[in-house]
Design a protein around this nucleic acid. Structure first.
Lengths: 252, 252
DNA sequence: GGCCGCAAACTGATATATCAGATCTACCAA
DNA sequence: TTGGTAGATCTGATATATCAGTTTGCGGCC
């Protein structure tokens, strides 16, 4: 049942990626882009998978031109590697790219939180508290992974929205594909008990951040956020050992 | 003479933009992209200028396909507006985009400086001091605008390099076209005396930042950086009044 | 039996042709 | 005179054809 739940969530991801409407290659190409990105990020198309343009074009019912647009877009995000005149394949997960994405996220979100601690609209703070409250409600039940994760997304997006910098978050996300894939690897590797613990930690982090903001204490809010975000990447080397084929052979 | 100096600098900008090799549309298209971006950012192609594909293709000696790639790239950066089936023109300077770019820059660079204040390689600190010293040398002479500006660029780039996050700076710059155009507007509007004063302020800012880093005082370094960066955007409304045609009609 | 070289086949890049939507203009009607 | 509409024209999107570089597999040679 958690199985079907997860699949449902996975199927939703294309939609989630679609709001990154920074990308388009024209009306037609866009759908292809979104579909491919979703499959790559979901690791449905694992790193190294060759992408045959002719075949993909036929599958998606478009010609080579919009398909090329989509691939170029993905190449610019680093999710696809195009070897000119040769072939195109799903890029390996790049450790360096993950570090950059993480850096960007900490930098941006830390600044968001800082500004919110200086001034936040009461309505926004309420909304944020509400999200955390809903997380707490389902936090104990190990079942609703999808819902919990969705609320987590909502929390961070609301932070950016409250600060008036949704666009920056969009830019950040558009370069965070490698990090998303790493997170995907983490998704399935915790048992129910461990997940509940993790959920509690997430909720605690969110609460600390909001407390810092509410108290008008930028430093406190920023530190809390930093701790909260650093959780994700810590276990990267472990994942890299478990899925050596998925990662680039670069340093570290 | 400062005239020819400035032109020489302007001619260099394409090269400066070229290291944003985040962008390509294939080997051929890349040159077109760089050339167009340079002309747009330099305000050589003012906002609102229609971009006729057939003509541009002929001018640059390429076909429509790579030209389209270049334009799509520019559209994604927000520098060009494509109205499907209708026309393509240079996008107006967007106040909101400038605010986002400025936000991103402060967030990213502030985090860079914070980390450097915690730990910096002695060689990097030396290099940075060296750049500021060279700025001080030519700071009094109003002539060398190009050289001074180049050193300024080098300073900030070296900060990112020292923190090991050049890639993030690249992403940031790739979305900073609107801000670059605003800066371009500021470039020509100060007389020699004013420029010397401004140069002094820049040098002072850089020095404060480095002092904060050297002292291992993140807060101090970050505050200094914040003050330093906020200089640029302050006079935006003034520019907007002077060049109403260049700006989008959006709020504020 | 293994290695080198050549050629064929495949792939992506580029150019061109076709399609469809949007704008503009001229003409008609109110 | 003005508003609207039909059609011509222009533009970008899409599809297809051509070009050029890369890989691969076969055959000959060492």
């Amino acid at each position: 049942m958690s199985e079907s739940e997860r699949d449902k969530r996975a199927a939703d991801i294309p939609g989630a990626g679609a709001d990154l409407d920074l990308f388009e290659g024209g009306p037609t190409g866009r759908g292809v882009y979104a579909a491919l990105r979703a499959r790559i990020v979901r690791l449905d198309l694992p790193p190294g998978t060759p992408l045959m343009r002719a075949e993909l074009a036929e599958t998606h019912g478009v010609s080579l031109t919009p398909l090329r647009d989509a691939l170029q877009q993905l190449a610019k995000e680093g999710l696809v590697r195009i070897y000119p005149q040769s072939r195109t394949l799903v890029a390996p997960i790049d450790t360096a790219a993950i570090r950059e994405a993480q850096f960007m996220r900490i930098a941006l979100e830390t600044e968001v939180v800082r500004r919110l601690a200086q001034a936040i609209a009461p309505g926004d703070l309420e909304r944020l508290r509400g999200i955390v409250a809903r997380q707490a409600e389902i936090g104990d039940r190990p079942g609703d992974i999808a819902a919990f994760h969705e609320l987590d997304e909502a929390f961070h997006q609301t932070l950016f929205a409250a600060a008036g910098h949704v666009q920056s978050q969009r830019v950040m996300r558009s370069h965070g594909g490698h990090l998303e894939r790493l997170r995907r690897l983490h998704l399935d590797d915790t048992d129910a008990a461990g997940r509940v613990v993790n959920n509690k930690a997430v909720i605690g982090g969110h609460t600390e951040i909001l407390d810092g903001i509410a108290a008008g204490a930028p430093g406190r809010a920023m530190d809390a956020l930093r701790r909260h975000l650093n959780r994700t990447v810590d276990r990267m080397t472990e994942k890299r050992a478990a899925f050596p084929d998925y990662f680039a052979s670069g340093t570290q």
